[in-house]
Design a protein around this nucleic acid. Structure first.
Lengths: 100, 100
DNA sequence: CCGTATCCGGGGCGATACTG
DNA sequence: CAGTATCGCCCCGGATACGG
């Protein structure tokens, strides 16, 4: 379970959801608040944990893509369920995380 | 998503899984590494987020029970999927988190 | 374009002791 | 039994600058 810990892990996973293959910069742009450091860090951790695959294309303009591994794909149902749950949040929204 | 962040949130949820109603001490004993502080803290946060309900029985020996709210129950499918995924972890276990 | 390196502050997390 | 209080470390996470 420790694998899913981290501020951005789930968010990144959601973007890789469904077998998407995204470049570094695409991920960066897709996730507004994230910094390069965090993105690369969380990606590397997930790579080490074997749920994300890193594909390097040796080109003059560097190009690196990320996608889910097989085991990562196995997370999809869970991710999906989580998503379904999240969007069904009832209106009861006191103010759990006011960001100043 | 921030709701599920935290070292122990998921673990606690797994113990409340399936509509279980547990006392504070039961949870404490069920989760080996946790401290009282962490248990109460995470519990309170989840309560504030509306996924855990707190039931106080006013007795001479205090008795407080915790269970999932309706919205918390809605997490069960996701939790289940997560669990299924976790136990299907392939043998590929390099050494992601060596704890010294 | 895709990273790595470094600095830094806040708070998550833990251990311990005390209360009703 | 079920918390509250306090202290402190560590490391997560953000900003910035630099390298291939």
């Amino acid at each position: 379970m420790r694998i899913l810990e981290g501020r951005w892990k789930l968010v990144i996973l959601f973007h890789l959801f469904g077998g998407a293959v995204l470049r570094f910069s695409e991920l960066e742009r897709s996730i507004p608040g994230i910094s390069q450091k965090m993105l690369i860090q969380q990606l590397r951790q997930m790579e080490a944990d074997g749920i994300v695959r890193r594909i390097v294309h040796h080109q003059v303009p560097p190009k690196v893509e990320y996608c889910l591994t097989e085991w990562g794909q196995a997370l999809c149902p869970a991710l999906d369920a989580l998503l379904t749950w999240a969007i069904n949040k009832p209106d009861t929204d006191p103010a759990p995380s006011p960001d100043p």
